[in-house]
Amino acid sequence: MLESGSPAPEMVLEDTMGNTVRLSDYRGEHAVLLYFVRATSCPVCNRNVQDLIRSGDDLTADNVRVLIAVPESRERAAAWKARQRVPFPVLTARRGTPHEMVGLGRRLFGTMQQSGSLLVDVHGIVRYVHSATLPTGGYDRKGVMLAVRRR
C-alpha cells in the first residue's frame, strides 16, 4: 500500500459506463477519497459505502470527491451501483483490479481480497491510507474524517 506524504500513483480506471477516469483528473480542483471495496457482495463493505453516502454532503463541502473501487467487472459493478443507489463513480480496472494498483492484493493464501481507503489531496499527495484483510477493518470513518479535516 502507499504511504502518507507520497505522490499518488497515476491510476487509469474505468467507470460503470466505460469512461476513462484518471486520479489525476481531479488534481488542482478536488481532493479524492478512494474506498476499495473487498467485493460487491461483502455486507460490511456495503455498510461502509452507505456510511460514505450519508457523509457525502459533508465530504463535498470539504471539496472531497468520493470514488468507489471494486475488483469485479464493469457490468457487475454497474448492477451493484444501481442496486445500492451509489451516487459516486464506481470504478474498475481494464486489466487486473484497482486494488492491485495500490498494493491491495489478495491475502490469506490468495483468497481474501483486501479493502481500504486512500485520501489524495488537491495537489496529488497521499494524505491518508488505511487497509485491512478482514472487511471489518477496511474502513475507518473517524480516521478518514480526521484526515479530511487536516489536509
Rank of each mutant, 00 (worst) to 15 (best):
E3F: 06
E3P: 05
E3R: 15
S4H: 06
S4Q: 13
S4I: 11
S4M: 11
S6M: 11
S6F: 03
P7R: 15
P7I: 14
A8T: 10
A8W: 02
P9L: 05
M11E: 04
D15E: 09
D15T: 07
D15K: 13
D15M: 07
T16M: 05
M17L: 15
N19Q: 12
T20W: 00
V21T: 05
R22I: 01
S24W: 00
G28M: 09
E29A: 14
E29H: 14
L33P: 11
L33Q: 10
V37H: 02
A39D: 09
T40W: 00
S41N: 09
S41H: 06
P43Q: 09
V44F: 01
V44D: 03
N46S: 09
V49D: 04
V49L: 07
V49F: 01
L52F: 06
R54L: 07
R54C: 03
R54E: 06
G56P: 07
D57L: 12
D58Y: 12
L59F: 10
T60Y: 10
N63H: 12
V64Q: 06
V64W: 01
R65I: 11
R65K: 11
R65F: 03
L67T: 02
L67D: 02
I68L: 13
A69S: 05
A69P: 00
V70Y: 00
V70C: 08
P71F: 01
E72I: 04
E72S: 09
S73K: 14
R76N: 10
R76Y: 01
A77T: 12
A78F: 00
A79V: 10
W80V: 01
W80P: 02
W80E: 07
A82W: 00
Q84Y: 04
Q84T: 08
V86W: 00
P87A: 11
F88K: 12
F88Y: 10
L91V: 14
T92S: 15
A93C: 09
R94T: 12
R94K: 13
R94G: 09
R94E: 04
T97R: 14
T97C: 11
H99N: 12
E100Y: 02
M101E: 04
M101Q: 10
G103H: 07
G103K: 08
G103C: 06
R107D: 07
R107Q: 13
R107V: 10
R107F: 03
F109P: 03
G110N: 07
Q114D: 08
Q114E: 10
Q114C: 13
S115P: 03
S115K: 00
S115F: 05
S117R: 03
L118S: 03
L118T: 05
L119G: 08
L119P: 06
V120T: 14
V120K: 10
V122K: 07
V122P: 00
G124N: 06
G124D: 02
V126I: 15
Y128R: 11
Y128K: 06
H130L: 14
H130A: 10
S131V: 07
A132V: 09
T133Y: 03
T133Q: 08
L134A: 14
T136R: 09
G137R: 04
Y139T: 12
D140T: 13
K142G: 05
G143L: 07
V144T: 06
M145K: 14
L146C: 06
V148H: 06
